[in-house]
């Protein structure tokens, strides 16, 4: 069977899972609505919750959609569609996909055409999100009762530990950006792009502060990511013309 990450088969597989999760949302919605009526809650208040949640969601949902575009070149549409509408987030999915691609000797810079590579990436992305789906059914009840508290006595160290984990991951990938520098000016392109994207993120931060524009938080990452990607086009062209 000829492999294509945008094949009808892929769309069907992904659509089935997404429909399943959509159905779950509907079932829980109905159950909660009925319960609200049982409790004698004001119907207007319930309706207001639905309306405001829907509004609240629109902006982040578009931000998530931008993530699908970023990953679509390497992975096609269906897989990023699934992973970003169910469970995932852009930070996780992009990192997991990149790590898996390099582990099997490929990269996200071109369309994955080898089904084995594609399957490996799909497996890694899937295995990475297992904990939530296992822990909530197992321990949800206990956690609710407040028996366990992972942060324990030293919650400040808990926070620092978590930041350390993220910084470790980020520094490894930022280091990777410098791996091609030894090849000359062309090898610096990723470094320039990294700085361009970092600059965009800083500008977003400044706008957030200066205008007290909280909305920009949702968009800062997609803006910087897609902005950095867009700027890589003139950067690449400029470097190529310099190198001749």
């Amino acid at each position: 069977m000829e492999f294509n990450s945008n094949s009808g088969f892929m769309y069907v597989v992904v659509a089935v899972v997404i429909a399943f999760v959509l159905l779950q949302s509907v079932v829980f919605f109905i159950k909660a609505w009925k319960r609200g009526k049982e409790l004698g809650m004001d119907k207007q208040a319930l309706k207001k919750t639905v309306g405001s949640s829907a509004l609240f969601t629109i902006a982040p949902a578009f931000a998530i959609l931008l993530g699908v575009i970023a990953l679509s070149n390497a992975l096609g549409f269906p897989l990023p569609w699934l992973r970003l509408s169910v469970i995932g987030s852009l930070t996780y999915e992009a990192t997991a996909a990149a790590a898996a691609a390099t582990a099997v000797g490929s990269s996200l810079s071109q369309r994955i055409t080898d089904p084995k590579t594609f399957a490996a990436i799909a497996w890694v992305m899937t295995l990475g999100i297992v904990p939530g789906l296992v822990l909530v059914p197992l321990f949800g009840k206990k956690i609710e009762k407040g028996i366990s508290n992972i942060k324990g006595k030293d919650s400040k160290w808990g926070q620092i530990f978590l930041s350390g984990l993220f910084l470790g991951m980020i520094s490894a990938f930022l280091g990777l950006v410098f791996a091609e520098v030894h090849t000359g000016l062309v090898g610096w392109i990723p470094v320039f792009v990294m700085f361009a994207s970092a600059l965009l993120m800083m500008v977003c931060g400044l706008i957030r502060k200066a205008l007290d524009a909280k909305w920009i938080e949702d968009y800062a990452l997609p803006i910087s990511l897609l902005g950095g990607m867009a700027l890589s086009i003139p950067i690449t062209n400029l470097v190529m013309s310099l190198v001749g």
């Binding site: 970023a70 950006v177 993120m201 950095g228 990607m229 867009a230």
Partner: peptide, 25 residues
């Protein structure tokens, strides 16, 4: 070129967020 540079673009942005919060670490 845009798609070849997904990773630098992603981690440049994420780097600013996390490094600025915890630059000492």
């Amino acid at each position: 070129p845009a798609f070849e540079n997904i990773l630098p673009a992603l981690f440049g942005a994420l780097g600013v967020v996390f490094v600025s919060k915890n630059w000492k670490i």
